[in-house]
Amino acid sequence: MIQSNNIIKTIGEKMILRGMNLEIASGETVAIIGPNGAGKSTWLKITAGLLKPTEGSLLIDEEPLKKDKYELQQIIGYLGHQSFLYEHFSPVENLRFFAKLYHVKKPDKRIDDLIEEVGLTFFKYEPVRSFSRGMIQRLAIARAILHDPKILLLDEPHTGLDQQAVDILNKVILRLKKKGVTVVLVTHDFPQVIKTCDRVIILKNGRVKDDIPLEGQDVNWLYTHYERQAIHS
């Protein structure tokens, strides 16, 4: 589904990705962890089509992701550090706008359902300006999955969420996983990794440092393993 072939990314003088090789199969739920500045967000942006690799290639469904590959852009849902939401619009108005951009069929029903799923029904018509960080993040999640993407790319989606919202997000991820959606989750939140993911990738200095299945492992194992791989070596 996602194939990253020896991707190198330099911005200015700085080499951020130094040969990212990674293959993610359809339907997998993969966590990408690593120290700050490892290049996780940069790689995710390349995968979303927001940045171009300096060298190497990124293939989605065996096809390179170019600007006018509308069919590919249509199947990707991306949530970065910014919500992409308009502050003076309500959740409904925001989602309606994105539903039109993504040609969503029967948008009103879909929007209602999603707003309910992320628990914002009560604030449906309030301007986003008045929302807390966590509420904005919930709406941003709804925005990212609005068009039923086959690939969902999430960059630290758990930050700023309260316990209830973390549970909602995990439920969303697990529901999509059951539907066969490929999920890539960049995060620092190890308990959520254990709860939702099949596989974990440790990124360090712009390279894949480790790539392990998570089946049957627990949080403590992940902490010790991460410490050994990312910090002490």
Binding site: G49, L50, Q73, I76, Q82, F84, E87, Y102
Partner: peptide
């Protein structure tokens, strides 16, 4: 620009 909406346009299936 406040919330990087331009990036939303770049990743959306629309022509620049």
């Amino acid at each position: 620009q406040s919330n990087d909406h331009i990036h939303a346009f770049v990743v959306a299936p629309i022509d620049a």
